[in-house]
Design a binder for these strands. Structure first.
Length: 288
DNA sequence: AAGACGAAAGTGGTTGA
DNA sequence: TCAACAACTTTCGTCTT
């Protein structure tokens, strides 16, 4: 799948980003006159926070030719050589930048494996950069900080990924990512919306291949459940999964509890318990 | 054979002294 | 810092379809 607005080519099956920073060929914005069009068209790819210098540094061509294709004079060649050398030296200036490059590589890998949208990934990069600037990164494993930044960005943008999912794909523990998540939020004063069951509905229903009818029914159920106050303190994924389970039965697209619990990343027992609470407290008619 | 159920013991995180 | 606690998991035996 080629997504020009995101500048990416991704695999349709697994969501792996294959090619990034394609140049966006479209103009910047709508234009109404030719003059306008000239003004608003742009050159180069959009700013990209996922490259350590935001993709803005100059690249010097390695060919010893000038713009018109003529060969350089020996003197110009030496000059060009020096320029390139300095270019390299300044581009990756110091250890810090080198670490940033490593961190971004890791972040890109993680985000790709978890199919996290580009904008959220960039949010994570910004969080990571800020954390490093504030000196929070001392003495902490880079992978943990990257994972924590990504998790934080997901939570901030309401793109729900569970701690488990992120921990599984990165080489760090859920515990560490969690504690660093809290730390990042506290130190950097990021406001995090509480993750709600509704946030998980679309992803779960997608995985279970449920129709739109089931989805809207599930959302209704969630609202009723919330009013009844039976959702407080319960794991949101479990609640979302159960709502889909019940909606599936009601709309004649039944899925087994086992499937539901697998997708919802909770056990069958939890789905069962939530199910009982739903049926007891809401007026739900389950046909045998 | 697969799915669902209930009971009981175990686990990790939160809370309040 | 520690114990109490609720929510959730794991495990296992049993019943139903």
């Amino acid at each position: 799948m080629c997504d020009e607005t995101r500048g990416e080519i991704t695999c349709n099956r697994c969501g792996l980003v294959i090619i990034e920073h394609i140049i966006d060929l479209g103009p910047e914005w709508r234009s109404y006159t030719t003059e306008d069009r000239m003004k608003k068209s742009r050159v180069g790819s959009p700013i990209n926070y996922s490259i350590h210098d935001k993709g803005l540094s100059t690249m010097i061509c390695w060919r010893n030719r000038d713009a018109k294709g003529r060969k350089f004079s020996p003197r110009r060649r030496i000059e060009a050589y020096k320029l390139r050398k300095w270019q390299k030296r300044t581009r990756i200036r110091n250890v810090r930048e080198r670490n940033l490059v490593r961190a971004l590589r890791e972040l890109n890998r993680l985000a790709s494996q978890l199919s996290i949208p580009r904008s959220t990934k960039e949010e994570a990069v910004i969080i990571y950069r800020k954390a490093v600037d504030k000196g929070l990164s001392r003495g902490i494993n880079m992978e943990t900080l990257v994972a924590a930044a990504l998790y934080t960005a997901c939570r901030a943008r309401r793109i729900p990924r569970t701690l488990d999912e992120i921990a599984e794909k990165s080489q760090t523990s859920k515990k560490h990512i969690g504690s660093w998540f809290r730390r990042l939020v506290r130190k950097m004063k990021i406001s995090i919306p509480i993750s709600k069951p509704v946030d998980f509905i679309s992803r779960f229903s997608n995985e279970l291949e449920l129709s739109g009818r089931v989805i809207s029914r599930a959302i209704e159920l969630l609202e009723e459940a919330k009013e009844e106050g039976i959702t407080n303190g319960k794991v949101p994924t479990g609640i979302a999964a159960t709502a889909l389970y019940i909606a599936g039965i009601l709309e004649d697209e039944r899925r087994t509890k086992r499937e539901i619990s697998r997708v919802g990343q909770v056990t069958e027992v939890t789905v069962r318990n939530r199910y009982n609470e739903f049926v007891e407290n809401l007026e739900i008619e389950i046909m045998a």
